[in-house]
């Protein structure tokens, strides 16, 4: 039976160099990252190449992506949040494209690796922290002291707020990573049943219809999850950025 973990393995393609003892390699993961960047660039630049007043389908996709993310940013952060629009747009399109590419059989899913999800989440976390401090100075820490809380439970609430703030990158990254990982493992397991059952002869081939149907249904679900996780990541990014801009609850 096919190993469901095999799809997550990282293979070196060539060595880029060394940092200390650590080899820095261009891996299959790197290739898929740049592949995602290429797809997004192609979609956005190719789609807008015509600059048509009445958009073609291709151009519509580029425009829809633009408007979808810009509406999300504008509705959750407001007009002044539009300076983060390129950042949020890059995040959304990168995650969405990487997730969608991952659904294609035999491909590698960049976002199913913890370190990539952590890098994405930490990038957001640090942006919120640094921009929040730069914009509001020490007023940023008002984020941890909600208004209208009785003074005797304020210390407790503040501790909880600090912990919840610090745990944000964890939940933010693990949500994405775990969803992608679990989905792909499940898909692979059910797809593996199809091959192992059909190796059992006529009855097996007949029986393998069930896991095949399951795989098909799961693939549809995974497409939904791929979009949904990209969207959830983006929405949470917007909510966190909103805290950086308006820390006073």
């Amino acid at each position: 039976m096919a190993d469901p973990i095999h799809q997550f393995e990282i293979h070196k393609i060539f060595t880029l160099g060394h940092i200390g003892n650590q080899e820095i390699a261009f891996t299959n993961s790197s290739a898929y990252m740049f592949g995602a960047v290429a797809v997004v660039s192609l979609l956005m630049l190719g789609g807008s190449a015509g600059r048509a007043l009445i958009p073609s389908r291709f151009q519509s996709v580029a425009e829809l992506s633009f408007e979808f993310v810009s509406n999300t940013v504008r509705s959750s952060i407001g007009e002044e949040g539009m300076k983060f629009f390129p950042f949020v747009f890059s995040l959304f399109m990168f995650i969405l494209t990487a997730n969608m590419i991952g659904i294609i059989p035999y491909t590698f899913t960049v976002t199913s690796h913890l370190i990539v999800a952590v890098a994405l989440a930490l990038m957001v976390f640090l942006t919120v922290l640094l921009y929040g401090l730069y914009k509001n100075g020490l007023g940023f820490f008002k984020l941890f002291v909600p208004h209208g809380i009785p003074i005797y439970i304020l210390p407790l609430v503040t501790v909880i707020e600090v912990i919840s703030f610090l745990s944000r990158p964890v939940s933010h990254s693990v949500r994405l990573f775990a969803n992608m990982l679990a989905g792909h493992i499940t898909l692979k397991v059910f797809a593996g049943f199809v091959t192992s059952l059909s190796a059992l002869g006529a009855v097996g081939i007949f029986g393998s219809v069930l896991p095949l149907a399951m795989t098909t249904a799961l693939t549809a679900l995974e497409i939904l999850v791929a979009f949904l996780q990209a969207y959830v990541f983006t929405i949470l990014t917007c909510i966190y950025l909103n805290d950086a801009l308006h820390p006073g609850h």
């Binding site: 990282i10 070196k12 880029l16 080899e23 820095i24 390699a25 261009f26 891996t27 993961s29 790197s30 990252m33 740049f34 995602a36 960047v37 997004v40 660039s41 956005m44 630049l45 807008s48 580029a62 633009f66 629009f85 390129p86 950042f87 747009f89 890059s90 399109m93 990168f94 690796h113 370190i115 990539v116 890098a119 990038m123």
Partner: peptide, 22 residues
Amino acid sequence: SQLVSFAIAFGLLYLIVSRLAL
């Protein structure tokens, strides 16, 4: 390796998106 690749890829994407595409 993944972090380096990710930094380069995402930086590149950010540049393309913010300078050209958007």
